[in-house]
Design a protein around this nucleic acid. Structure first.
Lengths: 181, 181
DNA sequence: AGGGCCTTGTAGCGAGTGCTACATTACGCT
DNA sequence: AGCGTAATGTAGCACTCGCTACAAGGCCCT
């Protein structure tokens, strides 16, 4: 059982139960090994978590790429709708839940979290730029604008203010009808 | 030493060290009492944290009210600028850091966190409505829009994408120059 | 002064934490 | 076949966790 064999199992456990519950013995159990071996393979817990987070980031990135519809969106509003629909899929929920834990860790200065969070956002932003409408006057700035909106909306939804987020988007210059949100 | 005497000291400790480090013995030490007494006064840890979070929410609300400049903002852009400047004050940093921990707990379903987060956002939204420009065509929807933007920008800043957030706001319909961000 | 409650100190329980020491097995290379 | 390294099991250490049992003070009321 090498690191590469273990990582998917470890990642699945972290996605399901969160980082706060990611202690060595439960992780080892989920990967059908022992805490002893986790330390053996990864050195210490900090490195273990860093590797798991990196693996999850890769998985998330791939899932996002895979879920991208073929045809280009026609408007910024459509971009936001599509992404919010995608990101709120039940299958994406564990990533969302984990994401806020990473943000919290990043804010608190937990080693490795800031790097992980920054990398995820950078990749997401890069991908967002490719999703902008073909005739968009400012795809680069627009992607940043939409990212800000989307993440704000997601946070509000997370804390029970989905309605606030929806009404906020309706009041934005994106206007139109944001079907589904 | 009653509950009311202890709460400010406990809140200070949570603001400084976060919820993850908020275990009974350190909390008790910060409040110059014993873990024994914390359980005696609050029943159990869950209730203790709920009370501390409620106390912190009150404190935050008061601080925000106090920091509001007298004169009304002239534009939505000015509203955003003022709030981001205020919310990024060093004195507000502990609240921000704690906030993401609450959001994470809310997403994970930790008892009490969802209620706390929802209440904070509701209060913030209500306050934001009072801050909208006098001649705003849609202060209610506008407040929700700005809240979404502000929170998205704050999250991006937290994970090291302050620049992304700034450029996103510059590309929004708020346009103008968002001095300071 | 004495009864009764509110408050507090001391000690500890059982479980979980990251990590290590030591020993043994498994396996590839010459 | 023999050697060396990689891989793994077993036990355990020192610590923290939330919480409780027990007992003793302190203080008010009559």
């Amino acid at each position: 059982m090498s690191r590469e064999t273990l990582l998917p199992l470890l990642a699945a456990h972290v996605l399901e139960h969160g980082l706060a519950a990611a202690s060595l013995r439960p992780l080892a159990k989920a990967a059908a090994t022992s805490d002893r071996m986790l330390i053996y393979h990864f050195g210490n817990k900090e490195q273990l978590l860093a590797d798991i987070l990196a693996h999850i980031a890769d998985t998330y990135s791939l899932a996002l790429d895979a879920a991208v519809g073929g045809e280009r969106a026609q408007s910024r509003q459509e971009v936001v709708s599509r992404i919010l629909a995608q990101v709120r899929e039940p299958a994406m929920q564990p990533f969302q839940t984990l994401w806020w834990e990473i943000v919290a860790g990043s804010a608190r200065g937990v080693p490795g979290y800031h790097e992980a969070a920054e990398a995820v956002m950078a990749r997401l932003l890069e991908w967002l730029e490719t999703q902008m409408p073909e005739n968009d006057p400012d795809p680069v700035g627009g992607a940043r604008y939409l990212l800000t909106l989307i993440e704000g909306a997601q946070m509000l939804s997370t804390v029970g203010h989905a309605r606030t987020a929806r009404e906020g988007l309706l009041a934005s210059d994106l206007a139109g009808n944001l079907s589904g949100d």
